[in-house]
Design a protein around this nucleic acid. Sequence first.
DNA 1: GGATACATGTAAGATGTTACATGATTGT
DNA 2: ACAATCATGTAACATCTTACATGTATCC
Lengths: 185, 185
Amino acid sequence: MIKTKPRGLSLLECALLALLRQAPSSGYDLRKVFAETPFVHFSDSPGAVYPALRRLERRGLIASLGSGGGRRRRSQRLTARGQRALRLWLRQPVTRADLAQARDAPMLRFAFMEEVLGREACALFLRQYDGALAAYVRELELFARENLKQASLSGRLAFDAGLESFRARRQWARRALRQMKEREI
Amino acid sequence: MIKTKPRGLSLLECALLALLRQAPSSGYDLRKVFAETPFVHFSDSPGAVYPALRRLERRGLIASLGSGGGRRRRSQRLTARGQRALRLWLRQPVTRADLAQARDAPMLRFAFMEEVLGREACALFLRQYDGALAAYVRELELFARENLKQASLSGRLAFDAGLESFRARRQWARRALRQMKEREI
DNA sequence: GGATACATGTAAGATGTTACATGATTGT
DNA sequence: ACAATCATGTAACATCTTACATGTATCC
């Protein structure tokens, strides 16, 4: 028995795994990706990235390439265990909690999915995602009917904004599925 | 000079202020709101809510109603300072960071805005929000043209999902502004 | 050899999560 | 009196933010 606690990985840690799979990189490289890529909300602060990398290293999911002391550039690569952890994360089903709380997690997974799991997994994901969205939209509509009667106009509109985000995302999922199939040839 | 550090309020703390303005409530009440309201992502865990309430109390933004020791129900109400803090939060301009990082903050503010600041402030907000979204969408489109050439299909689609969310939100903002004006009579 | 950019790290503090503990109230 | 529910709180832990500290390479 190993002493590793089976705590889950944070979204940041998963993103780091996915980026390191594409190419071994240093913490500095990864921070630049976060700094320069819009609308992915990860912090490029050293106090977030370097500790996360060392957590991944401690778990054996990544390993240093260039060694040496001091403060020289130190690239990290994914280990076999890291590969497995990444695939596991990418293959998770889409849950209601993913929609309600960790709203960006599904899309982050999808962004890296094709490279790691291939087109079929992407198509499966899109169908699951659409289904989960459909159920969640129904739930929200029901809530609106029962609880938004005497809300202010701005309150109702704010709720609508959320609802329409999910509806738009459903449309996107359908379109994405079509495109995946078209280019399957 | 008072010793209060001018640290900002967390989104949770702002939400608590807004809810307490509607009606004095206990921590338990507030937790139930978070537990039962879908797609507002606040935790209903006691370890999040009670410490946040005590921080607000320490700052003089809320105050206890029912006193008494033990573990009896203790409702909190907004103080005059709390009112001012709430209005200040609601009146903040929409920034790029609100769109890129704190994505839910603007809508949370809008939801409570009419009750506290009135229709005109809502209309101003919607125009600002639309403008900020327009600029951000242009920025994202530029990024896509320059950096998404050799991305995988799922990678490009994931980016599109984000883009379309922002476009859909712009449409919503325009529609909301129309509705605000229609019912202004 | 001095300035500048590259690169890694840490310390302090805020916040949130999970799990547990415990006091009050209500119904039977 | 007992259980169930209401209601508040705390301890341990993980993560992230901000700000600072420090070493290395490169260019002139």
